[in-house]
Simulated scan of single mutants.
Amino acid sequence: MTAFSVLDLSPVVEGGDIRRALQETTRYAQAADRLGFNRFWLAEHHNMPGIASAATAVVIGQVAGATERIRVGSGGVMLPNHAPMVIAEQFGTLEALYPGRIDLGLGRAPGTDGATARALRRYFEAADQFPRDVMELQAFLGAPVEGQQVTAWPGAGSNVPIWLLGSSLFSAELAAHLGLPFAFASHFAPELLLQALQTYRAGFRPSKTLDRPYAMAAMNVLAADTDEEARHISTSMQQAFAAVVSGTPGKLKPPVDDVTRVLTPQQIAAVESRLTYAAIGGVDAVRAGLSDFIARTQVDEVMVTGMIFDADARVRSLEVTAEAMAGL
């Protein structure tokens, strides 16, 4: 049976600030918890005024403390930006505070531009060391061994579940090689989704973590009481995607009645290519979209996401999505 989870980018809206964004993320997570979603993940991005979750581990702790049942994790931590031991200590601490509820999703990209990567005191070359860093992090989270000179306290023996995230074939191959669960970022990079899933499943080697492959894929889902309302609220996300494609990311803009009045045809085409896997509409349209996505990908878990301007509409989108899920 397919599981369903939530990815939140903790958007900062026009007219709002980071405090408000984090408060709305907490409310959103509480709704996901109440509605029975499996996980609630947050993403690491830097130098982006429209995203409030740069200090991802801190926000995970806030969300985990405000919820009761749902697993909370990173989707993901960009490991090239960090020393593996520091991440082991952070997530070992979270696991100690919220046992059995913490996930550690790892990405290979820096999640930012070159200047910001230098400000983080890490460099793009660090991505070349990603496989080594993942295995080092695994060791820090595992049980200490005799003669080990450096141990992560907290972290050691916590065995926080590690996921590999990707938008290409590299992480699919590495997740298969290491026998780890794999999540694909098809909500913004859909082109290689099916190929990456096939690569992961074909090359999977059983490990202490998994005896068979476990794949998750992200999908843009914007649900409302009517198809028309869902299409209206989706224009905020379309504007956000266009801004990223144009290299001018900013705060999340309010929805508009006619997106062609604020985006060029070229921008709209670029946005539509990113929305290859999307369900936008009322409960019936979302149910059909989810059903088709699961049938095409055969994923074990679907992670829904969507940039919605109004906090009440965000929660309502989750409620309608949960209703659609129940009817599958």
Rank of each mutant, 00 (worst) to 15 (best):
T67P: 12
N81A: 09
L164T: 07
G155Y: 06
T276W: 04
V244T: 11
P99G: 10
S236A: 13
G147K: 03
T67I: 05
V145D: 01
I102F: 02
P249H: 09
V160P: 12
R205A: 04
G100T: 10
N220F: 06
E173L: 02
A57F: 01
L290F: 02
G203M: 00
K208R: 15
T276V: 12
Q23L: 12
V145C: 05
L174Q: 08
H177W: 13
A143V: 15
E44N: 11
A242K: 09
M78E: 06
A21C: 12
Q23T: 05
G15A: 09
T112R: 02
E272S: 13
R20D: 08
R39S: 10
V302M: 13
F170I: 02
T151H: 04
R274I: 04
G281V: 08
V256E: 01
A175Y: 01
A117T: 12
L22T: 08
T67S: 12
L9A: 09
T248E: 10
D258G: 11
P255L: 04
D33G: 09
M216H: 01
P110H: 03
I280Q: 00
L120E: 01
K208C: 00
G155H: 08
G179E: 00
G147V: 09
L79I: 06
G105C: 08
W153V: 15
D211W: 00
F241E: 00
G306Y: 05
Q62I: 05
K251Q: 15
G61V: 06
L210G: 03
V302K: 07
R19D: 13
G105E: 06
